[in-house]
Design a protein around this nucleic acid. Structure first.
Length: 296
DNA sequence: AGCCAGGAAAGCG
DNA sequence: CGCTTTCATGGC
């Protein structure tokens, strides 16, 4: 089955939701890196479940197998009151709303914690296309293969499996110097005396960030990515090179002396409790629509 | 406080 | 085909 014909989706589950949602844009927006387009939809794993998803209408998703609809609804935050979130954004920021308008259907995904941490550890100083390649190679080499009549996919390997593979194996998969960080984190978590679940109980964002920064290779940027895409801390605002460029351009008249730390504070202040959500619009807009023009 | 290694491929001309 | 850049961090 190539998921190309209507009959391939006949037994799919159906999710009706309200608000803006763009499946393709969300899966290609640099928060998750392993989904592959197939036929009219996308195939990938959510945790250890192989899932096929297709946007059949503006406000409808088809899900294979049909018993994964709840998982997918949760994964893409389709149960959230999006209008209420949009209402928290600053109304008088024309630049920001232009970024929203260019892809209003972007949503923040709720990712499993370990694969989120490991993936962003491998993402440092790499391009999205490259992270995708490594991410898939790692899953295919160490992860578990899942089959369905309509497709195949690999789940992200558990910490134990990554730790057993070791740093040298990860290097062979193209992780470079990042292999050390991933191997160390896998070792730490595989032993079982430390769990990422502990982070869920942190009462403040600062506490959670400090918890995450204990891992080798995790600084503020990666911590904020895991907080936003994994823990659902919607105010976490990762400042990477793209965000730095776009904020400098839009809010600081291109002033090169403004530092990332200052931008972080400004963002929380300016965009509010869903600053991380706002970041995703700005990031996507910077990459897709502005690109090189931003340099000047 | 600022600089630089580390590591590989995509993205440019 | 070569050169630069790349969703950073840790250590000096």
């Amino acid at each position: 089955m190539e998921l190309e014909s209507e009959s391939d989706w006949e037994c799919a589950g159906r999710i009706k939701f309200s608000g803006e949602f763009d499946l393709s844009a969300t899966l290609s927006s640099g928060q998750v890196f392993h989904w592959l387009p197939k036929g009219k939809g996308w195939v990938g794993c959510v945790g250890s479940s192989l899932v096929g998803v297709r946007q059949s209408k503006a406000e409808e998703l088809l899900v294979l197998p049909s018993d994964q609809t709840d998982v997918i609804r949760h994964y893409f935050r389709l149960d959230e009151d999006q209008a209420a979130i949009f209402a928290t954004f600053p109304r008088n920021d024309a630049f920001f709303w232009q970024a929203v308008e260019s892809s209003p259907g972007l949503r923040i995904i709720r990712q499993p914690l370990w694969e989120c941490l490991a993936t962003f550890l491998t993402s440092s100083l790499k391009q999205v296309a490259h992270i995708q390649g490594i991410s898939l190679a790692l899953r295919a080499a160490i992860g578990e293969e899942h089959h369905a009549g309509w497709g195949t996919g690999f789940s992200y390997p558990e910490p134990r499996a990554v730790s057993e593979a070791g740093e040298s194996e990860l290097r062979k998969l193209g992780l470079g110097y990042r292999a050390k960080s991933v191997a160390l984190a896998a070792e730490e978590l595989g032993k079982g005396n430390l769990s990422l679940e502990t982070g869920r109980t942190c009462s403040s964002d600062e506490e959670l960030r400090e918890f995450l920064c204990q891992f080798h290779g995790v600084g503020r940027k990666i911590a904020h990515c895991v907080m936003l895409f994994g823990y659902g801390r919607m105010q976490a605002f990762p400042v990477d090179v793209w965000i730095e460029r776009i904020l400098r351009h839009a809010y600081y008249q291109g002033d090169p002396s403004v530092k990332a730390s200052e931008m972080e504070i400004f963002a929380g202040d300016h965009f509010g409790p869903y600053a991380g959500y706002a970041q995703q619009f700005l990031f996507h807009h910077a990459r897709v629509h502005l690109g090189k023009d931003l340099e000047k």
